[in-house]
Design a binder for these strands. Structure first.
Lengths: 123, 123
DNA sequence: ATAGTAAATAGTAATCATTCCTATTATTAT
DNA sequence: ATAATAATAGGAATGATTACTATTTACTAT
């Protein structure tokens, strides 16, 4: 994989935010630096970076978000503001349960807890 | 909400499968009975049935699947065959943890375990 | 440094799932 | 049976993503 300014910029933008950005948001950020960058370039590079294991993709409902944090972790999704908050749970127990009950070999576990975050708690 | 053949058929098709079908699959099934049914009708009715709480939507990666089982439950996703297998876990502990640690009021928990099912276990 | 190469890009067209629009049809209360 | 209006079929529109292609760029061997 050969160097490119575009890929390096995309990598930096994803690395520098905790907002789990979408491809379109990343595209808008890159345009501030490389005005004629194309959206296809953003998508192509995000896919390559994911394949290399440098970033992670998160399916948030039917939209795709990207995350520099490739360690297994879970998310809290606030229905009021849409924010995704990172949280880490141990999943070993679940993996062993499904192995025993279903002979299912678990590779990873994705957990999302939906509710309202502290900023938007209903009184 | 007024009766319609189309909606009744869609309801029956979703109810009679455990395959967590997509809108397109449901559309193909309905066409066998009502050949000139339109895809928009399928989507509109699936949405209405979900709003009434008769069915559930599942986001499987970036595609939407529908499920007659509206009770909270989790899924095992086989990376070999794509099948979704239903499983039920208790989530109370997670809800209380995020309440304590993040002041996050959890409504629901979605858990997906990714791996290989017994039919496709690697030797 | 230069030329040859293959990878990467910009720009645009195509695809896919889903939603929207509208004239027509079907259901239901009277 | 009729009027009111919910629901439909068919097709256009949308939005996210992928594919295509001519041009540009990065790397390699000279």
């Amino acid at each position: 994989m050969r160097y490119s300014q575009q890929r390096q910029l995309i990598r930096e933008i994803v690395t520098r935010t905790n907002s789990h950005p979408t491809a379109d948001w990343i595209f808008k950020q890159t345009k501030k630096i490389i005005p004629n960058i194309s959206l296809g370039t953003v998508y192509r590079n995000l896919k390559q970076l994911e394949e290399k294991g440098e970033i992670d993709t998160i399916y948030d409902g039917n939209i795709v978000r990207y995350d520099w944090n490739v360690e297994s972790h879970d998310h809290l999704k606030c229905t009021e503001c849409g924010d995704l908050i990172d949280i880490h749970f141990k999943h070993d127990k679940f993996k062993s349960i499904v192995k025993r009950k279903f002979k299912f070999d678990a590779n990873s576990v994705e957990m999302k807890i939906i509710g309202t975050c502290s900023k938007h708690a209903k009184k």
